[in-house]
Design a binder for these strands. Structure first.
Lengths: 197, 197
DNA sequence: CCCTTATTTTGAATTCAATTCATTTTTCTG
DNA sequence: CAGAAAAATGAATTGAATTCAAAATAAGGG
C-alpha cells in the first residue's frame, strides 16, 4: 500500500532506538510499535544496521538544510563558522534523541564502522570546509591550514562535546557556553594574524 | 594457576578484536586462540563487554606512562602540548590495532556507551587539562578558556583524525602533517595574544 | 462479480552466538 | 594418598536477528 509502511517502521525505529539504544533495541518491538509483522521490517530494510543507516541518511536531510539556511543568514565566513558551531550544538540540545542516535548509536552499526560513512555525513562535514575555503579566498583565514583537516578537527571537537553532553545524565553542561569557547579557540586559531597597526 | 590464564585470554582478545572487530569477534575464537575453553573466559571476565573494557584499561596504563614521559621531556607548556598531539598520533600510527580497538571498537561496547568512560580514559584526558592549566598559570595560555572544555575539544579533534585514519583502507593520510596542522590551530587558538612590541 | 495471478504480509521456524552450569579435572592440605 | 576446594570444561540453554513457506490482500480480465 502507498501510505508509508516504510515510514511507519522508520518512525518506530527512531523511538525504540532512542529509548533502548541500538544494541538493546529489539526488531520485534520496532515492528510491534509500527503495527507490522517482524518479517515486514525485512521487506523494507536489509537488516537492523540498514535501518539505522536509513534513519541517519533521512534525518540528515532537514538538518543539513537547516544548517545551510542558518549559515546563509550571515555574510562573513567568520560569522558563518560561528553560526555552524552554535547551531550544531543547539541541535544537540533541542533534539537529544536524534543527537544520541547520530553520535553514539550510529557508531555501533558495523556498516558505519566499516568505513561507509554515508553521503549525508560527508555533505555535512563539507559545509565546514566550504566556509573555510571561502574565508581563505577572502584572506581572513590562514592558508597554511588544509580545509580537509580543519573540517575534521572542528567536527571532532564538536562531536566530543556533544557526546559528552548526551551521555551525562545530569544535563549540567552549558552547550551555549561550549559553543562560545569552541568559537574562541578556533576563530583565533585559524584567522590570519592581525596586522600590527 | 599463577601463570596468566587471564593474560592469555586478554592477548588473544586483542588479536581477534583487531582482526574481526568487536561485534564480529566470537568469544569461542578468543578462547580457542588463548587455549582455554569458552567457559573459562567467563571465569575471568563478566562478558564480552567486560573483556573489551579490561583491554582498554590495561593497555591505557603504558600509554599514559609513555605520554607522561614524553611530556616531561620538554620544559614549556607550549612544547608539552605539541608533544601530546604528536605523540598521540604517532601512537595511532605505530599501534594501529590498539588504536582501532580504543577508538572504534570501544564505542561499540554498551558499557562504554552507557556513560562509564573508565578511569584510565579520564586520566588520559586530564593530561591535557593539566598542561593547559600550567600554561595559564604561566600566562602563556588564555584565561578565558576552560581547561575542562579544552581537553575535550582537543581530544575530540585528535580522535576524529585518528578514526578517519584508522578506517581509511589506503593509509594515504599523513598523520605527522595532521599533527602539525592541529598544533598550529590550537596553539594559536589558545595562546595569549602577542604583546604588540 | 468470480476466478486467477501477482504482490504483500505474516509469524513460526531457523540460525547463530553469548552465556550458563552440571560435571570433570586439577590443585591443595593434612 | 584420601578428601575437599578450586579451576576448567564444553554441552546445553537462551535470546534475538533473520529467513521463508504459507496466508492474506490486491489487481486484472472475462
Amino acid at each position: 500500500m502507498r501510505l508509508g509502511k516504510r515510514e511507519k517502521i522508520l518512525k518506530a525505529a527512531v523511538k525504540i532506538f532512542a529509548r533502548d539504544g541500538f544494541f538493546n533495541a529489539k526488531v520485534e518491538e520496532i515492528a510491534r510499535l509500527a503495527g507490522v509483522a517482524v518479517g515486514t521490517t525485512y521487506l523494507y530494510f536489509e537488516n537492523k544496521d540498514d535501518l539505522l543507516i536509513s534513519i541517519f541518511e533521512e534525518e540528515m536531510l532537514p538538518i543539513i538544510n537547516n544548517m545551510k539556511r542558518e549559515i546563509e543568514r550571515v555574510p562573513t565566513p567568520v560569522e558563518k563558522l560561528k553560526a555552524f558551531i552554535t547551531h550544531h550544538l543547539e541541535m544537540v540540545k533541542n533534539k537529544p534523541d536524534m543527537a544520541q542516535l547520530l553520535e553514539v548509536e550510529l557508531r555501533q552499526s558495523s556498516k558505519f564502522i566499516r568505513g561507509y560513512t554515508g553521503t549525508k555525513f560527508r555533505e555535512y562535514l563539507n559545509l565546514i570546509s566550504q566556509i573555510f575555503e571561502e574565508g581563505q579566498q577572502q584572506g581572513v583565514f590562514r592558508h597554511d591550514i588544509k580545509p580537509t583537516i580543519l573540517k575534521q578537527v572542528l567536527f571532532g571537537a564538536l562531536d566530543q562535546i556533544s557526546t559528552n553532553y548526551t551521555l551525562s545524565r545530569s544535563k549540567k553542561i552549558d552547550l551555549l557556553e561550549s559553543a562560545d569557547q569552541i568559537s574562541r579557540i578556533f576563530l583565533t586559531g585559524i584567522s590570519t594574524p592581525n596586522q600590527p597597526r
